[in-house]
Amino acid sequence: MNEIYISYAWKDNNSESGKRREELVDQICDTLLAQNYKLIRDRDHLSLGKSIKQFMESIGRGNYVILVISDKYLKSEYCMFEAIEVIKSKEYEQRIFPIVLEDADIYSKEGQFYYINYWKQQKEKIEKIVNEDFQSDIYSAIHHISDKIIEISHQIDDFIFFIADKLSINPMKNFDGFINQLTSSIQDDAAKLRSNQNILVAGTGNYQLAPEIYLTAKHLGEKIAKYDYNLITGGWQGVDYVVAESFANQLALKNIPLSRKLTQVVVHGTQPIFRGGTLEYTEPGINEWLKCLQKADVVILLGGLGGTYETYLYAKQEKIPVIPIVCTNGDAKRVFDEILQDWNTQIMGNISITKFKSLNQYINNEMTAEDVVNDVMDIVNEIIFNQTVLKL
């Protein structure tokens, strides 16, 4: 999810209804932009000199579409072509948020018939012009206009009946409710995107782990699986093993094949300590880090004795967000301190430094380890949301 389109009839600023419509769209745009959503407004987009046809076709492929429907909209060739492009897209029902203004009479049978008949008449008029004056020149502009109007006339009834039946909060009556309805839908869908997002976990590679590292790794594997992310490890003993085992156990409860969700990147001629998932082989050296990072959307660090710090350095070069669990000490503590010292250059979306500092907690039992992991995953979810939805 990464774009919200706003489609409305905007060449009407002189009438009172046109002014109110423009003010409403301005308010919606200002509110969504303040929350960092990616927004495309047809008026601003087209003012850049881009193709109207291409833009209207892109509307139909948009992630979410706000349709501000007025009487002028329902009679506009361009607006209705936008609308038709939208309903031609798969699963359009869940992506449309219509705002029906008071001058658009689509809730009565008389009003619905009026707009359907209006486009039937437009179709008849344009067909008469084409048949009488432009029969030979099938590539003329009038033929393109004719095709567009004919398509609208064929689809207008489906569009009107869909909009009339669609439940959407009217921002004229409840503006905050409309914004919350839209953003809640986006956030719900963003959660579904997690199944395509990859978390690389790196940390201490010893068989014997300190209690705080072991407990954190165990809960981290569970949470990554519960949130439906994919896991990447380097196949080592220690943190890699504990996270992978915990991750696999959780997936087993959900009856999800491990090979779909776990990738272990190991050097040619070796095998991962935890046996399972999909194996990918690489050359020793820098490729051990880079091949993992090429797949990663976020990196989480636990403890570490040198190699974990190198993971951070390569991730920084590759512009991948890194979350060090500071209370596991070692390289994670070193990275945490460095990130704080150079906060303004970090790729953390809109995560505040205060929220990041909150990771500096003490772990001494299962409960405190789970609390820390919950805070880590909150940050992961926010970063992923920023990457996939917001303009950050």
Rank of each mutant, 00 (worst) to 15 (best):
E3M: 04
A9C: 10
E16S: 06
E23G: 00
L24C: 02
D26Q: 00
L32M: 01
Y37F: 15
D42T: 08
S47H: 09
F55C: 09
S58G: 07
G62N: 05
K72V: 13
L74T: 12
K75G: 03
E77S: 04
E82D: 07
K88Q: 12
Y92F: 15
I96Q: 01
I99C: 01
A104Q: 06
A104S: 04
K109L: 14
K109W: 11
E110L: 06
Y118C: 03
K120G: 15
Q121W: 07
K123Y: 11
I126F: 05
I138V: 15
H144W: 11
I152L: 06
H154F: 07
I156W: 04
I160V: 14
F162S: 02
S168F: 02
S168C: 15
M172D: 10
I186Q: 03
Q187G: 01
D189A: 09
K192W: 07
R194N: 15
S195E: 14
I199L: 11
A202G: 12
L209N: 04
H219A: 14
E222V: 11
K223M: 15
I224M: 08
Y227N: 11
G234Y: 08
G235D: 06
W236Q: 11
Q237D: 13
Q237W: 05
V239H: 00
Y241N: 11
Y241E: 13
S246I: 09
L253C: 05
P257E: 03
K261W: 12
F274Y: 15
G277M: 04
T278Y: 10
N287R: 03
K295D: 06
D297T: 00
D297V: 01
G303N: 05
Y309K: 06
Q317L: 13
V335K: 00
L340S: 01
W343P: 13
S352N: 02
S352Q: 02
I353A: 02
K355E: 15
F356I: 09
F356D: 02
S358N: 10
Y362C: 07
E366F: 07
M367P: 00
A369L: 02
E370V: 02
D375F: 02
V376P: 03
V380E: 05
N381G: 06
E382Q: 10
N386K: 00
L390M: 12
L392I: 13
